[in-house]
Amino acid sequence: MDLVKESIIKAGAVTALVLLLGILLGYQMDDLRQDHLSEELRQSNLETETFSVLDDYVQRSDGDHCQLMDVQIPSIGERNGELGSELERFEAQNIGSDEEYRYIRDRYYNNQLRLYMALNSYKDRCNGTNQTTILYFFDDSTESQRQGAVLNEVVKQKNVQVFSFNAEVDDSLVVDVLTEDFNVTDYPTVIVNDDQKFEGFISVNELNYDVLNGNQTG
């Protein structure tokens, strides 16, 4: 066999091998990603469930356990927020199986809603708490990107918990019910403590000083 043909065959074989390695490692990474998200979600579910169960119990007891439960909220909220960011990032890169991500995302939204309701119940019971809950509905517009960056800043305050929902997802009953209940028609939309609704971009300053601080002093 002449040198050129031999070299073409060798090059073809190595190229095919590299392709195969890339694909195999890619699938391995897909599994790792999904395992990571599933584990994070499992932990978040457990934390939400624990908080919810304790809230139910504490409602029946005579003791004031508000402070004890208050200190758990930041870490629960942080995990929830990070999980949401990772989910959006991994899904936006179109890596991995769409079906798997959709399943994890739907479970995540369920968990968020459960945590949101548990927090609201806790707030109703513990009047002294200064926790703020923010529902955030977004799409893939530039304004939503900016609003997301603002909320990432705001959430650094440990008494603010953000629950974000992508309005562009298909087949999410949770998103459908929430957007209908709060009459969300424009994106981004931020809803603070169930009663203050802001459609369109709201800046860090407006959110911090006019809304959040106003909430706490008012």
């Binding site: 590299v18 392709l19 390695l21 890339g22 694909i23 490692l25 890619g26 391995q28 990474m29 790792l32 990603r33 990571h36 990772e86 990032r89 991994f90 890169q93 890596i95």
Partner: peptide, 13 residues
């Protein structure tokens, strides 16, 4: 998470 988020099907080759 950065490594997890990278597209290894492209980056390894």
């Amino acid at each position: 998470t950065g490594i997890l988020g990278s597209n290894m099907k492209v980056y390894l080759p």
